[in-house]
Simulated scan of single mutants.
Amino acid sequence: MTSDLGDRLATWLEGLDLAGHLPAAGLPSFTRDADGRAVWTDPATGDPMTAEQLEALDAMLHSQGDDPAHAIPLQLIQVARQARLRSELAATPTHDYASLAAVRGATLDATRFMIHKTAARHRLLVIGDHRDVIVPAFQLTSGGEPRPDLEPVLMPLLAAGMDPWAAWIWLTQPAALLGGLVPERAAADPDEAELVATAAVRLAERVASSSS
């Protein structure tokens, strides 16, 4: 019965394309053995899950929503969405040290210095560390300079310690705080710029309070 329940849960999650996001959501994960059977692992101990643990997991996975037969934990959906958006964003125009240096017509060292100095002032969103960085291109002018109109939007978010990927997602996706406008685009509109800056401050306050 344990095996049947484990297989059913695994097949269900695979069909929803959520199986790969279980560890990031803090949930037990599974692998398939040589016979294709699901082998579930307790993340706390690393041991195979018992029948009682699988039954508890089954109840938890189907405990949310109006239709328990098809409900999915919100946390798992959010993790999957974040992973999907990260993949999509990574495919959009970005720069590393060398490509941005070429756009700016500057040396690699000068560009590296500019990136980290500007990021330290919370005026540039940078993913990665000093050795390997991703600089999303949306925040730059055609000459490779930080967009002035984004400064009042970026500064509160980055100063609050917002995760860079989360900031990238918020800036480039329709935002509820802006009635569905895309923040980085709306910031370029003088009629919307103040609204975007205010929304960024409110979001930064939430970020700061959640991490305190």
Rank of each mutant, 00 (worst) to 15 (best):
M1G: 11
M1H: 09
M1D: 11
S3T: 14
D4V: 12
L5D: 03
G6S: 13
D7I: 00
A10K: 03
W12S: 07
D17Q: 14
G20W: 13
L22E: 11
P23Y: 05
A24L: 09
S29A: 15
A34T: 15
R37N: 13
W40E: 10
P43Y: 09
A44R: 15
T45A: 12
D47H: 15
L54K: 09
L57M: 10
L61F: 04
S63V: 07
Q64L: 11
G65R: 12
H70Q: 10
A71K: 00
I72L: 13
P73E: 06
L76M: 10
I77D: 06
I77T: 12
S87D: 14
T94I: 02
T94C: 04
D96V: 06
D96P: 04
D96T: 11
L100I: 04
A102S: 11
A106Y: 00
A110P: 07
F113W: 09
R121I: 03
R123M: 09
L125Y: 07
G128H: 13
D132F: 08
I134K: 01
I134R: 07
A137P: 05
F138T: 08
Q139M: 12
Q139H: 08
G144D: 01
P146W: 04
V153C: 01
G161W: 06
W165Y: 10
I169D: 07
T172G: 09
A176R: 10
L178T: 04
L181H: 09
E184H: 12
D189G: 03
D189K: 06
A199K: 02
A204G: 12
R206K: 05
S209W: 02
S210N: 11
